[in-house]
Amino acid sequence: MRRYSELKTVHDRRGSLLRLPAGDPEAVWLENQRVAHRGGRLAPWQIRLMKAVGIDFTDRRDAAWRNTYDTLKTFHAEHGHWAVPDDLTTVDGVKVASWLRSQRSTRRKGSLSSEHEKLLDDIGFPWDPAQERWDTRCAELARFRTAHGHLNVRGPGELYAWLYQQRKKFRQGKLPPAAQQRLARIDPHWHDAEHHRE
């Protein structure tokens, strides 16, 4: 019970038991409990106690994947885009931006599990980095429209250049219908620069 109490303190302080230094007594004890669980040698009351403090008996890599996924999902819900900053790190120490690149690479190689791919698809994760950049600019344009009541974005700047290109593609008939619809939800007259002049 002493080791359990120490582990509970670590969990309460860090919010996670993943990435404990391998030589720590708590990490060694925890791994022994996982081995005992896999071997069916833990009593139900022991399992309940451990689960109550966040000890997850699933594969640690899968638990880290889920934590990173949850961090990404929360970030997207709060910010409306997928351009996570390079310094966004999970409680387990995983850099989310690197993890995103890894998910794309793993999928391209055909080795991303169907379960993980479906979870990412379900939250609208863009597999194409160009789509990610487009989504980021679209979210930025929506925030601009909300803040200013129009789409008269002044240049120079990335948002100005991006909107100019979307309007140009629209006039040339090269803007996909899905993109047109998303922009029209921001402002039905998004494509008419003259309409937004002050």
Rank of each mutant, 00 (worst) to 15 (best):
R2K: 11
R2D: 15
R3F: 11
L7K: 04
K8R: 15
D12Y: 08
R13A: 15
R14F: 09
S16I: 11
S16W: 12
L17Y: 02
L18C: 07
L18V: 02
L20C: 00
P21I: 02
G23P: 00
D24R: 10
P25E: 06
E26I: 00
E26H: 02
A27G: 00
A27F: 00
E31Y: 11
N32K: 12
N32M: 07
Q33A: 04
A36P: 01
A36H: 03
H37T: 00
R41A: 13
L42C: 07
P44G: 07
L49K: 15
M50F: 15
M50G: 09
K51Q: 15
A52R: 11
V53Y: 14
V53P: 12
I55R: 12
T58N: 07
T58E: 11
D59V: 01
D62V: 10
D62A: 08
A63L: 14
A64T: 02
R66N: 09
T68K: 07
T68I: 10
Y69W: 08
Y69V: 01
D70W: 15
L72T: 01
K73M: 12
K73W: 10
F75N: 03
E78F: 06
H79T: 05
H79E: 08
G80A: 03
G80K: 07
G80W: 07
L88G: 01
L88C: 05
L88A: 03
T89W: 13
D92E: 13
D92G: 05
D92M: 04
K95V: 06
V96T: 02
L100K: 05
R101K: 08
S102D: 09
Q103N: 06
R104I: 04
T106Q: 15
S111M: 07
S113T: 12
L120N: 05
D121R: 14
D121T: 06
I123P: 11
F125K: 06
A139K: 03
A139P: 05
A147C: 04
H148M: 09
H148N: 15
G149L: 09
N152V: 01
N152T: 01
G157M: 09
G157H: 09
E158W: 11
Y160M: 06
Y160I: 02
Y160C: 06
A161W: 06
W162E: 05
W162L: 08
L163R: 03
L163N: 04
L163Y: 03
Q165T: 06
Q166R: 12
R167N: 08
G173K: 01
L175Q: 00
P177Y: 04
A184P: 00
A184F: 04
R185N: 12
R185I: 03
R185E: 15
I186L: 11
I186H: 09
P188A: 11
H191F: 15
H191G: 02
E194K: 13
E194H: 13
H195L: 07
R197S: 10
E198M: 10
E198A: 08
